[in-house]
Amino acid sequence: MSKRYAFLVDMDRCIGCRGCAMACKNFNQLAPDMVWRQVYPLDEAIYPHRERAFLSLACNHCDRPACLEACPTASYEKREDGIVVHHQETCIGCTNCIRSCPYGAPRFNSQEKHAEKCSMCYERIDAGLLPACVQACPTQALTLVDLNEIDESKYEQYPAGYPAMKRLNPSTRFILPKKPRIVRG
C-alpha cells in the first residue's frame, strides 16, 4: 500500500513561533512577499487567550484537491504518496486555484505572475529528509505522518477555525491545545 503523507499539527505543543513558515521561505527561496506556510492565531472565541494558540497551515494535500479540479492547465499533480505538487512552469496565473482552495494554500506570485504553493518539500522527502518546516519545528509540534500508519481516531481533522471540507478530505491532522490553570489576584 502506498503512503499517504500528511502534516500533523500538535497545537498543544505549538508555540506560534513561525519558525516553520520562515524555514519554508528559507529552503524554498520564496520571493520576499511570498509565504507558503502561515501560522494563524486562534480567535478568543476558540481559544480563550488571545494569540496564544495557533493553526500552522500550508497545503493540506487533499485527497480530492480543489486546486487540481480548478486548474485549467493541469499544473497540479497528485502523487501516489498523497503529495499535491503544483508545476509553476505550466501555470498561466489564472488564479482559479487560489479562488478555489478553501485553505488559501496556493498564492499568487505577483512578480512571476503565477500561483505557487507548498510542495511538502517532496524533493527532500524523496531524498529521505523531512520537509523544511517539519525539521524547523523546535518543539516537534509539526510532524510528518503517514495516514496509513497512524490511528486517525486520535486526531482531529476539522478543528474549530479550520474550514471543514469533507468532499476534499484534507490530509492535515490536529491535536487541540490545552489551557493552563489560571491563578489571578
Partner: peptide, 18 residues
C-alpha cells in the same frame, strides 16, 4: 498572469470547469 499561453487553459478538460 501570462496571457500568451492562454490556449493552454484548455488542457484540463477532464477536471477543470474553467
Amino acid at each position: 498572469g501570462d496571457p500568451k499561453r492562454a490556449m493552454t487553459a484548455l488542457v484540463n478538460l477532464s477536471n477543470s470547469w474553467l
